[in-house]
């Protein structure tokens, strides 16, 4: 990818909602505002999501223990608002774009 096409591609993503995953199994969801050649990503209005904790999963499992052993469990990810963040490229494991 040459420089011009790279810039164009990234510009199409600006202000779209990105899910940026980090290597400590968190995900950040927010408006894409800025990036550079080290893939540092700035998100505004961002939320932090975390996998449900083992306790929450266990609790959900217990409360549905009456159901059959193949039942599907639904556990919400825990989230909180963070605002403007920069995720350094070195920790990013995955990037998704929302609603293309």
């Amino acid at each position: 990818m040459d420089d011009t096409r790279a810039t164009e591609y990234l510009q199409t993503l600006l202000n779209k909602k990105l899910c940026v995953y980090t290597n400590d199994s968190r995900m950040f969801y927010g408006d894409f505002k800025c990036t550079d050649n080290e893939c540092n990503i700035i998100l505004s209005q961002s939320y932090e999501y975390r996998e449900p904790t083992p306790n929450a999963v266990r609790a959900a499992a217990e409360s549905s223990s009456g159901a059959s052993s193949t039942a599907t469990l639904k556990v919400d990810m825990t989230s909180r608002f963070l605002g403007l963040i920069v995720v350094p490229g070195q920790y990013i494991t995955k990037i998704e774009v929302d609603g293309l």
Binding site: M1, D2, D3, R5, A6, T7, Y9, L10, Q11, L13, L14, K33, C34, T35, D36, N37, E38, C39, I42, G89, I95
Partner: peptide, 15 residues
């Protein structure tokens, strides 16, 4: 994303 970002010059920003 990674490919596109690494094609940028050092110090160049897409914002």
């Amino acid at each position: 994303f990674f490919v596109a970002a690494s094609a940028l010059d050092t110090g160049q920003l897409v914002k």
